[in-house]
Design a protein around this nucleic acid. Structure first.
Lengths: 231, 231
DNA sequence: CGAACAATTGATCCTCATCAAACCTTGTGG
DNA sequence: CCACAAGGTTTGATGAGGATCAATTGTTCG
């Protein structure tokens, strides 16, 4: 049932933690299992816990007053999310975390983590590395959204997903699992446009598209679209 | 010429540093003065130094292969920038820092800061707070860019600028200094569209527009535009 | 005064969002 | 095992929102 504490070393923030620390963390963790479509937390909730996804898949998203959504990132196994509460007092989550499939996560009290970091500089540095990575990704995506055309943005989203969660099939393709709507929210467009673009790519033999599924046949072709000069 | 070390306490990251630490930092800092339009560093340069702006004003921006730019943030006095080198080894700056007017900054070696943080958890926490703030702002702006119309984005950019660097005039207006191009790069649009929107707002009495200058007459009107439901 | 640069404004065009309708795919229950 | 419901996907038609281009008009400064 409970998790082997040493498994926690797979979490990048804990990669160089002591066994003792891992065990202490595990003792303080609460296991939460939720179904597809349910939520770990909502934008605006007090950030009392940080989470580590143990199994399943989730997404972080933001909603505007009108209810439109954007996907900020997808969360895979052994990734940490909702960690900003460990940094600032009385913080609220700036985004909503929703399970994409049946998922279970460990919840650790933010103040516990906060205390632990006080005396373990490595922990802080690892968390900062995570943050700087994320900042860089967001800056890039922001620039893309501001300056690049849709087709290219979709190509980039697919490539990012490939790196994060692509599964190689035995015939050399790369399989990804998500809906057109998901991909649209990642690329800042609509599901209609995503559908059209994927159809066009399928015609060109770059990908195969199915229900909640895209199989990438020629990654290089996507790279070309993502990179090619604006002509 | 050189700066009083205790002035460094105005930098949020150093707010609870000891006097000794501030003096040590000041001793290791190099002062760099540059003219309007020149650069502290370029995207892709090795991130060997972090900077603290002592006087003037600068902007952080990203450029895509085609040369189009987006403004990530503007930097005011006593703000730190280019700090990610203190977190990760062999990092390169993910953005370019350009002076908007004659500016001087203190440059501190990234590895010196890195070492200092090892034994001063407060420093790390303060830096992490800065990072989480910035992450939240970028997430918001990303969502805006993805879901909101131009006029509203421009309104929000103006409001953000107001908070960051607005100067109250004696007759109750708020004065901001930048070109249409700057504002366009902040809002993810073109200088033409910015010009049109400002003209329209001027007609409605919300702002007065001049060369490299906008005077906000009715901040509340801008808030309304920024907030009003999508109808 | 003239050059350089910032801003305005009109005309045009193109990319995408939006709306509507039909089509697939998957899972469920009779 | 089939029928049907639900949700995902496709595709066409249409139009709006801005980008782009071009020409002109300020403004500032040497």
């Amino acid at each position: 049932m409970a998790i082997d504490p040493l498994q926690l070393r797979q979490v990048s923030v804990f990669q160089n933690a002591t066994d003792d620390d891992l065990q202490s963390l595990a003792r303080h963790a609460i296991e939460r299992s939720i179904e597809e479509g349910e939520f770990f937390f909502f934008q605006g909730d007090p950030a009392e816990y940080l989470y580590i996804l143990v199994s399943g898949r989730a997404k972080l998203m933001q909603t505007n007053p009108a209810g439109q959504q954007v996907n900020l990132r997808t969360i895979n196994e052994w990734q940490m999310f909702g960690a900003l509460g460990a940094v600032r007092e009385n913080a609220t989550y700036p985004a909503t975390a929703q399970a994409l499939e049946h998922s279970t996560a460990l919840a650790i009290r933010s103040d516990f983590m906060h205390e632990m970091m006080q005396t373990r500089p490595d922990l802080s540095f690892n968390l900062m590395k995570l943050m700087t990575d994320y900042i860089q990704e967001m800056q890039e995506r922001y620039r893309e959204l501001a300056t690049e055309k849709v087709e290219r943005r979709i190509a980039r989203s697919l490539l990012r997903l490939t790196a994060q969660m692509g599964v190689k099939t035995r015939d050399g393709g790369i399989e990804l699992t998500f809906t057109r709507q998901d991909l649209a929210e990642m690329s800042g467009t609509t599901l209609y446009t995503v559908s059209r673009v994927l159809s066009e790519w399928e015609r060109r033999g770059l990908v195969e598209a199915g229900r909640e599924r895209v199989l990438i046949r020629k990654p290089h072709g996507l790279v070309q679209i993502a990179e090619e000069s604006d002509q």
